[in-house]
């Protein structure tokens, strides 16, 4: 067990190093964005004196490394700074949106992960059957259309008919039940987009193992095909499956901007787009860092789970 903790510790440190490098890249990239924040805030009519005063007040005249240092130390203390556009603390602004994004990601994951694992296992079990071909074809069709197209088709079929709302409104009075109902279409859109990857990886990972001698042995022990796949193939196929699931979960958190826009869902993606439009650099930086953390954390979890499910790594000789 100690080895596992050691490994988790090492990966955490590596993850922190990755995040540090990413923070440099994020800061550097936002430096390259065109435009002048002071002018953006004060408008075209501002005089040179007021602009200079504001730049001084915001610390925009400091050299870049110093501003990076101030930003980083703030972030490490949980202080992302103040939104320059809205004058609100960023943690407050991002906090609510992050909750919404995580809710939608979890919702879509709760639909798509079981669905794709089930489809993948069944497709492997009945490989080359009508079921296998049909589920493959459908999943590939869903992934081949752009997200907004899938979203509009769903709106056309399921919202125009009045079954589900096409817009998501979240107020303090919204209950979880309401939320599940009103966020169903965005969650379904995301499910359709990510299912194909996970399903096809599950199918491929299992089929890859079916030629192994231990699978033949299981069949020669007189086990049913379902038992052979579930008990003898799946446990050995977990590592690739876990990794593709983690990658798709990260996508569900970070890559849903288009879907949020279509369904007017108040998530992080929308906030980031708005912030880029407004040159609200501190907000852009904060969200980019959150997205990066999600990737690093999910990959870390995937690594640890792959190790735990592999007896050769868990139980040394």
């Amino acid at each position: 067990m100690n080895e596992i903790w050691l490994m988790i510790g090492q990966r955490l440190l590596l993850g922190l190093l990755t995040l540090f490098i990413i923070s440099v890249v994020i800061f550097g990239a936002t430096e390259l964005l065109p435009g002048d924040l002071a002018r953006e805030l004060l408008g075209q009519s501002a005089t040179e004196e007021t602009l200079a005063a504001l730049r001084e007040q915001l610390g925009l005249n400091d050299p870049a490394p110093l501003r990076y240092w101030n930003w980083l130390t703030g972030v490490l203390q949980g202080d992302f700074g103040v939104s320059m556009a809205t004058k609100k603390p960023i943690s407050e602004l991002v906090g609510a949106r992050l909750g919404n994004t995580l809710f939608l990601a979890l919702y879509a994951a709760a639909l798509s992960v079981p669905l794709s694992l089930l489809l993948g296992v069944l497709a492997a079990l009945w490989r080359n059957s009508i079921f296998d071909r049909a589920s493959n074809a459908l999943a590939l069709t869903a992934i081949s259309f752009p997200e907004f197209f899938v979203a509009y088709i769903l709106v056309l079929w399921l919202a125009q008919t009045g079954l589900f709302p096409s817009m998501v409104r979240i107020t303090s009075a919204t209950t979880t039940g309401d939320l599940l109902y009103s966020a169903f279409l965005p969650a379904l859109t995301l499910t359709l987009v990510v299912t194909a990857h996970m399903m096809r990886m599950t199918r491929a990972a299992i089929i890859n193992l079916l030629a192994s001698p231990y699978i033949e042995m299981a069949r020669l022990k007189g086990l049913s095909p379902m038992r052979v796949v579930l008990r003898h193939a799946v446990p050995n196929a977990l590592a690739p499956i876990i990794n593709v699931v983690a990658l798709n979960l990260a996508y569900l958190i970070t890559g849903v901007v288009v879907v949020e826009v279509v369904f007017v869902y108040p998530g992080l993606g929308q906030l980031m787009i708005d912030a880029v439009t407004n040159r609200d650099i501190a907000v852009v930086q904060a969200i980019a860092l959150i997205f990066a953390s999600a990737y690093v954390l999910l990959n870390l979890i995937a690594d640890v789970l792959s190790t735990i499910t592999n007896p050769r790594l868990m139980h040394r000789k």
């Binding site: 192994s212 001698p213 231990y214 033949e216 042995m217 299981a218 069949r219 020669l220 022990k221 007189g222 086990l223 049913s224 008990r231 003898h232 446990p235 050995n236 499910t309 007896p311 050769r312």
Partner: peptide
């Protein structure tokens, strides 16, 4: 046939290292 395999007719493979499932 499945009912016979493993119960009345059993099999011992060439490479036991490859024929035991590494996960169990």
């Amino acid at each position: 046939r499945r009912g016979l395999r493993g119960k009345r007719i059993a099999y011992v493979a060439q490479s036991a290292a490859a024929s035991f499932n590494p996960a169990h």
